[in-house]
Design a protein around this nucleic acid. Sequence first.
DNA 1: ATGAAAGCGCTAACAT
DNA 2: ATGTTAGCGCTTTCAT
Lengths: 365, 365
Amino acid sequence: MSQPNARRPATLASLAAELGVSRTTVSNAYNRPDQLSATLRARVLEAARRLGYPGPDPVARSLRTRRAGAVGLLLTEALSYAFRDPVATGFLEGLALACEQAGQGLLLIPVSPSQPDVTTVHQAGVDGFVVYSVREDDPHFLAVLERPVPTVVCDQPVGIDGVDRVGIDDRAAMLGMARHLTGLGHRRIGVLCMRLGPDAQDGRADLLRQEQTSYPVQRARIGGLREGFAEAGVDWADVPVHERFEHSVDAGEAAAAELLATHPGITALVCTSDILALGALRHATARGLAVPDDLTITGFDGVPEAERAGLTTIRQPVREKGQVAGELLLERGERNRPRQVVLPTELVVGTTSKGPREARFFSGW
Amino acid sequence: MSQPNARRPATLASLAAELGVSRTTVSNAYNRPDQLSATLRARVLEAARRLGYPGPDPVARSLRTRRAGAVGLLLTEALSYAFRDPVATGFLEGLALACEQAGQGLLLIPVSPSQPDVTTVHQAGVDGFVVYSVREDDPHFLAVLERPVPTVVCDQPVGIDGVDRVGIDDRAAMLGMARHLTGLGHRRIGVLCMRLGPDAQDGRADLLRQEQTSYPVQRARIGGLREGFAEAGVDWADVPVHERFEHSVDAGEAAAAELLATHPGITALVCTSDILALGALRHATARGLAVPDDLTITGFDGVPEAERAGLTTIRQPVREKGQVAGELLLERGERNRPRQVVLPTELVVGTTSKGPREARFFSGW
DNA sequence: ATGAAAGCGCTAACAT
DNA sequence: ATGTTAGCGCTTTCAT
């Protein structure tokens, strides 16, 4: 379009012809400086500058060497969304770090929302893929699996044969959260979770939907909660679980409003992400509910904003996830690392959780 | 690497041979479905599945078609830093949007900090580059210019021949800020700016350094301030300008401390970014200075966090910058758009600016 | 230290 | 509707 040298006049071959040397020599001038005399090399490079030869074409080189020098990244959502989600940006930061260290490019695969156009996956010139938290039956993910390059998954899907994975123990983390809450005395709780299916379906999610979700992470988190509350004798069928397709503070606020309208008696609202929890917090404030006195609210992730808000949450090492994903893919240290990495999480008790009023009476004496 | 089909057994040619058809036919089955009968196409695709042929190799196709299907992005800093900077992520969001709409991948070029290893630029298989706010003499940028593909610059460098640019009028924006401050009565000010050179040089920047900076954006912003204060009779030689290499809230805090220690008499602290201003704000709080009563503090960018803090600042459309950069590169609408796009900015008067005490006496009667 | 030959895997004319 | 013929620009044995 408008580059000064927007033609592609010179090629390695034309340069070689011009100089009266072989293509090998020109190639060596760029790739194996020790294979030719310094003077000849200088002559080649000078001629290149003079003729506007930009150096070996990367695509042609990739074809020949069978290495693209880049890793592809497939994200759940529209690319533009990822940059707004603090968890995703944390992951990206770590992954970018790993790529930097390995001198590899990071190719973000564009996914037109809900458009099953998989060509962008097919057309990606990469040496491997990192897949970040996508649905099990995501068509783009299936397209990735067809490509004859290594793949590393972060979080979900789980249990894909021959594919490395980095994640956390979502179930155990939420079990810990459940025990924290039952320990405080909570028995009547509500749950706000992220999308459970490919379709936008906001509102209460029944048991079947909870179990059949195509998002194993949500299943594991809900499962951990369920187990923890079962230990305290709570029948999960009575626990309202509300899902929200969109992941945003606004969505969390709306979901909290909805859930509290139908279940005003709950004493704790457990959210499967901090973003949703921040929305719930906002709703509580708007409605005049004191947190944690009138209502306990908890999150998941440990994003900076949640920390600032004093949210009780599960902190997970997002950045490290990204870095490990990259290292796993780039085989740093020649694959003596396990193919399945589970990173630790930590329960952070903030100022948004406390025993319910009834329980406090008890503990009063 | 552990992909189930990690070999590369089948190629288009082998598939064609297997089926007893020509390579063209197989190619058409993928790229021009209308060029062959539905039954033959089905037969081809079935054989492909059976033989584990993953479809045409993207690199080979790119070599042939001379299109990589991706745009490269060169950033100022280490990639991993970009995801922490709200201005950069806003830009990325917009750029990603444009790429999504065009079905193009976005290749992030890794830049090992301060390492002049330009090979990653050379090895990038892209159809064009977007360059985000880099130093004029950045070696990576120079490498980009050598590549025979179109390039769009955001912000800086400026005035590169034949290269499109999207930016704002930094000088005019800061002139507006200066007039806002002089209008309030400020005459003794200090300035906190971002790095002015390739080397980490924290501390006071003299006139020469201000003028010779390799960052045109900083020069323009400082220039606008200078002009505005000249209108009010302020001699710029008396104005302390402190630069900071690192761009972070902490850096802003430290710089503010430094500047106020040597110039306790200033009534306003003008920062060339919100991040620095947030740091200055923190220092003021720590030191017990009331803002804006004891000290006026202003920023630049209009990031969400600044808005929350009520900062007086210049709001610039970061996201749109990214989108326009992408569109410019991808020539949406066949280049009837200007090659130099200047987006509007807006002075946002928050709660951190107010006239100095002396002036307030005046305006009292 | 330099060159000749072969081919990476594909698509685009141009036939038929 | 399908096949034939040429490369895209490069690296890499293997000779010299």
